[in-house]
Design a binder for these strands. Structure first.
Lengths: 194, 194
DNA sequence: CCATATTGATTGGGTATTCAATTTAACGAG
DNA sequence: CTCGTTAAATTGAATACCCAATCAATATGG
């Protein structure tokens, strides 16, 4: 028997798409079940409630991004290039509709979640990304490709660039198709040893 | 007769506070009218509907920011310092609870508004800020305090830094109390002529 | 045979918006 | 200043709608 995706997977896929397209509160169980083509009741059966469903969707995206990041960072020549790769991977991932990255952008994972446990889970998973970026900066300071900066502070600032870039590039009418490249260039310029 | 604030003003004030604290969909007419201490029906009477109310609240904040920006930028010695003042003013404004800046952050002005006319109104008002920042960069390139950059591109990149900084500093658990200063420093470092 | 998956109608609660009724304010004529 | 008239402000209950979550009934699979 050719087993395709399970109904649970279909629901999660539809949920990720709808969260991406219309945000948390505009996405209803009815719309999700209709897009997935399965019964409405399966949502609570498989995911508990709406918030848990979003958490599942969001974590799915974050973990895939972490994995992609780890893969792309293999074999980078130095810390500065690692940061460049990190930024490019981040933007490429966000641009790719198949990844449903907008789930995280549209749904404010740190403010829309209501229970503190759910927030903590999301925070822990996001922290992986921060850790990776910080290690890139640390590496660069050590190997001399990045100027003398506090890796902790610098990595947060770089992350702000990425977050702001995503919001500008994908949510506002400002910025052109080169925005992401411009940001990468600016970040590298600001870190490079001179 | 000592005329205090009108009921319309009380409603708008309460709406801005609640939008800031809990976002668009968590803010209800009931909560707004209760906090303002006036009748629920006045909301539609004065503002038409919920989206128009949010638009009014958002525009109020943007226009106040534009005015503050213009004031603070008077008498800056050169373009680079103008950019620094712009960034500092932006962060100070966002940090100040009295300004209800979080209305704009929590309510995603470019993605939550439903009608294209409302989006256009918001876009036009926001553009004032972009124009001001671009002029600062242009000035700096001319007076030699900023290196040779495309003012259009550079100002958008700087804006991304500010937007990302706000989200990190006020919405996520990452970044410390010096984050805003770090970002200003990074931006200035990336623009300064060497 | 039992646990799990699946269905969709039902439930209970909450929402923006409407509306008829009432109060207040504005303003000119006498 | 004082009515009288009219428009605007104000009220909160009523309306109509939508949603997440429940649940009893049924099917499936190991």
């Amino acid at each position: 028997m050719a087993t395709g995706p399970t109904k649970k997977e279909l629901l999660l896929k539809a949920a990720k798409e709808l969260f991406s397209e219309h945000g948390y509160s505009e996405t209803t169980f009815k719309k999700i079940s209709e897009r997935a083509g399965v019964a409405l009741g399966l949502l609570t059966h498989h995911f508990g409630n709406k918030e848990k469903l979003f958490l599942t969707a969001g974590l799915d995206v974050v973990q895939e991004l972490v994995q992609t990041m780890r893969t792309n960072l293999q074999g980078v020549p130095n810390g500065l290039e690692a940061v460049r790769t990190f930024a490019k991977t981040y933007f490429d991932f966000a641009r790719n509709p198949r990844q449903d990255f907008m789930v995280l952008v549209r749904c404010s994972p740190f403010s829309d979640l209501k229970t503190t446990e759910d927030k903590d889970v999301m925070i822990r998973n996001f922290s992986e990304l921060y850790d990776i970026l910080r290690e890139c900066v640390q590496l660069g300071v050590k190997d001399g490709s990045i100027r003398e900066v506090d890796p902790q502070k610098a990595s947060v600032v770089v992350f702000c660039n990425l977050v702001g870039g995503i919001r500008h590039g994908l949510l506002t009418p400002y910025g052109d198709e080169h925005l992401f490249d411009d940001i990468v260039e600016f970040v590298i310029y600001g870190l490079k040893k001179r």
